[in-house]
Design a protein around this nucleic acid. Structure first.
Length: 480
RNA sequence: GGCGCGUUCGUCUAGCGGUUAGGACGUGGCCCUCUCAAGGCCAAAACACGGGUUCAAUUCCCGUACGCGCUACCA
């Protein structure tokens, strides 16, 4: 590779929502391209009619955009190497399949799915290798012509050498070698005329001038087939980098059942794109030093493939929560309020006053992992009156000292010029001087009377958020 | 079953022959403090196993075990 700029791609299949593993693959491709000043393109691999989900491609693009991943070429973006949707490139794949056929590097297979399935079952029962038995590899021309004349549905299979070994160097794993004799005569063109992944991906990567294929480890075993295809076509193959898998807590491949896997799920739950991206970037890559908090821009500057690890990484939601809490806390009040607003409204909080909304939201910033956490902290603001069920709470508020404190609080409240966190704090100091009550005995009755809870933010702040009138009302209601 | 890839604290990871094996999340403790959260400090916690190579292996090689992936007319 001379100094030419790399071209990489993210090539999802529109079969559903974007998986977090897919997001990471997209992210690494994006970071690699940005770091090298290269080009990233989006290609939709919709060659499986059966699994196609309408609208999924658009949704995928939208989710990627949410995460901050932008493409230089792709559907709806444009570029010189389109179309970027495989279903619009069928003729190209078919032509290439025909070329292999003519050159004796592929052959027609008339075996039906049922026959193949039955063969596989037989093989499984007798514990044999499950591979295509190459039944049609040796069909006579006569035979083939006859079936073609009958319009018999068929596939086109790759003619894999019977012996020999294929070696390649993976950018992440180093040298990998696989014997041809364990490689199946892969179907390249399905009987519906559409290509399989193997054909389409090679043809497209070549025509789209992809220089580096950065994809999940699940593709490692089929890379020799792809390399063979490059060889058959006489093309220079791209470099390959196979990323380690993302795993469940039990170390199986990350999947539904054991938690959310769709990026949309995390988005809906209130995770910030910055947090998700930061977290996911570190699942299989590290900067080589102790830094952990990375903006997308910082990742773009630091990312290199040689620091990608080989082993799978468990998706630990606890660490994602920590990242999210970090980012949530760092948000300016107005932005935090935007995230929390809907939840605050659902908790019965009137968000019409944006300054007040921002103030309340940021008062609880340190308490939040996700925006919806704010709901439980807002109870004290939205209840009409404070009542106690716990005997201990009642005792705390009704003790002799507590009553002195509450009475003095009510008295001084009316004399206070300005009502805010710091003036209330000063006032509480005065109450301490006036009553001689201090510490927990001073604060807890006030906290309880004002909020009904024993825990929460600074009491001055609570008083400010509640407002003078509400405070007065609540304190008085606890006076015997 | 076959083939491939992998294996450092519970989790994410640093380490690229000689280190008290470092950091982060989580966990426990202490501090701060009216409480909780946040924050600060401290602690417990790992080189899968067996052979080599070497003066010296977490590090290099081989094997075993375990895990994962692939083994579709899915990607």
């Amino acid at each position: 590779m001379i100094s030419s700029k790399p071209r990489v791609r993210f090539a999802p299949s529109p079969t559903g929502a974007l998986h977090v593993g897919g997001l990471r693959t997209a992210l690494y491709n994006y970071l690699f391209a940005r770091r090298q000043g290269g080009t990233l393109l989006l290609r939709i691999e919709d060659t499986d009619r059966a699994r196609y989900v309408a609208g999924a491609a658009e949704k995928l693009a939208e989710t990627l955009a949410w995460a901050g991943i932008t493409f230089d070429e792709g559907p709806g973006i444009g570029g010189d190497h389109g179309p970027y949707v495989q279903s619009e490139r069928s003729d190209l794949y078919r032509a290439h399949a025909m070329r292999l056929l003519e050159e004796g590097k592929a052959y027609r297979c008339f075996c039906t799915s049922e026959e193949l399935e039955a063969a596989r079952l037989r093989q499984a029962r007798s514990q044999q290798d499950s591979a295509y038995d190459r039944h049609c590899r040796t069909l006579t021309d006569e035979h083939i012509t006859e079936r073609l004349d009958q319009n018999q549905p068929h596939t086109i299979r790759l003619l894999v050498p019977l012996a020999g070994e294929l070696q390649f160097r993976d950018l992440i794993r180093g040298d990998v070698a696989i014997h041809y004799d364990v490689i199946d005569d892969q179907v390249l063109l399905k009987s519906d005329g559409l290509p399989t992944y193997h054909l389409a991906n090679v043809v497209d990567d070549h025509h789209m001038e992809i220089t580096h294929v950065i994809r999940g480890e699940e593709w490692l075993p089929s890379t020799p087939k792809h390399l063979l295809l490059y060889e058959y076509f006489g093309w220079t193959p791209p470099s390959f980098a196979h990323l380690p898998l993302l795993l469940n807590a039990d170390r199986t491949k990350l999947s539904k059942r054991q938690g959310d896997v769709a990026v949309e799920d995390y988005r809906a739950a209130g995770y910030l794109p910055e947090a998700l991206v930061n977290f996911i970037a570190l699942l299989g890559w590290n900067p080589g030093d102790d830094r952990e908090l990375f903006s997308l821009q910082e990742l773009e500057q630091s990312f290199t493939l040689d620091r990608v690890s080989k082993a799978g990484a468990v998706f630990d939601i606890e660490k994602l929560k920590w990242f999210n809490a970090q980012y949530l806390r760092a948000l300016p009040p107005e932005t935090l309020a935007e995230y929390c607003g809907p939840f605050m409204r659902s908790a019965g909080f009137d968000t019409a006053d944006s300054d007040r909304t921002a103030a309340v939201a940021s008062a609880f910033a340190a308490y939040l992992t996700i925006p919806s956490d704010i709901v439980s902290h807002l109870r004290f603001l939205t209840i009409s009156q404070v009542t106690f069920e716990d005997e201990e709470d009642i005792d705390t508020v009704s003790s002799y000292d507590a009553q002195k404190v509450l009475a003095q609080f009510a008295y001084l409240t009316e004399t206070l010029d300005t009502w805010n966190a710091s003036s209330v704090k000063d006032m509480i100091k005065d109450i301490q001087n006036d009553t001689g009550v201090k510490g927990k005995k001073l604060f807890m009755p006030l906290r309880l009377a004002l909020t009904g809870e024993r825990h929460g933010p600074d009491i001055g702040l609570i008083a400010e958020l509640l407002g003078r009138d509400a405070c007065l009302r609540r304190i008085r209601s606890q006076l015997v």
